[in-house]
């Protein structure tokens, strides 16, 4: 009886020390949660989550103040990643956002633009150039497609367009006749 107690206490001490040592020796200097989340967010800075940008949303998530399903451009994929990082329960996105949207960028109809700079103020990444009463234009390579500029335009001259296909962006299509697909799916 006594020997058993001694043995178990001894074991407990040894393993406790081992674990303690391992905790110190192999401590992982992990990314702060907010940074991890910020890294997976699409950085459109669109504010559709209700926060002024991606980073504030990430910080709110890190403090568990926000829902995991608010990032609309990120879609389900990002939602699942967020719930993996934060350990929060995954939630479905709104129906409107469930369909993943292809990436689009803003175009300004320069004939209609009145040069009000409202869109310039709205753009979260300063991708619109122009000055007062001079027409504006969107720097295509820097537009994140957040659509924030569309509603603010007083003359509705901004529209979202899918990018033009070019040799630079062309992709080989994936094979359609994939093995073990459902019966005669490709026919």
């Amino acid at each position: 009886m006594l020997s058993a107690i001694v043995i178990f206490v001894g074991l407990a001490v040894v393993f406790g020390l081992l674990l303690g040592y391992a905790a110190v020796r192999f401590k992982v200097e992990g990314n702060p949660v907010a940074k991890q989340i910020d890294d997976i967010l699409p950085q459109t800075q669109c504010g559709q989550c209700g926060y002024p940008g991606c980073k504030p949303y990430a910080e709110a998530l890190a403090n568990e103040e926000a829902d995991v399903n608010l990032c609309i451009p990120g879609g389900n994929e990002v939602m699942i990643l967020i719930s993996e990082i934060t350990g929060l329960e995954p939630k479905p996105l709104d129906e409107s956002a469930a369909e993943p949207k292809p990436k689009e960028t803003a175009f300004i109809d320069e004939d209609v633009c009145i040069g009000c700079v409202l869109c310039i103020k709205e753009c979260p990444v300063d991708a619109i150039v122009g000055a007062t009463k001079l027409m504006h234009t969107v720097i295509q390579s820097e537009c994140t497609g957040c659509e924030k500029c569309v509603p603010v335009c007083p003359v509705d001259c901004i529209e979202m367009r899918p990018p033009k296909p070019s040799l630079d962006t062309w992709q080989w299509p994936e094979p359609q006749n994939r093995p073990t697909m459902e019966e005669k799916k490709h026919e």
Binding site: D38, P42, Q43, T44, Q45, G53, C54, K55, P124, V125, D126, A127, S141, E142, T144
Partner: peptide
């Protein structure tokens, strides 16, 4: 790269 750029520009803007 685009995401990184957007992040930088947004932070700069802020």
């Amino acid at each position: 790269q685009a995401v990184e750029l957007a992040k930088q520009r947004h932070e700069f803007r802020l």
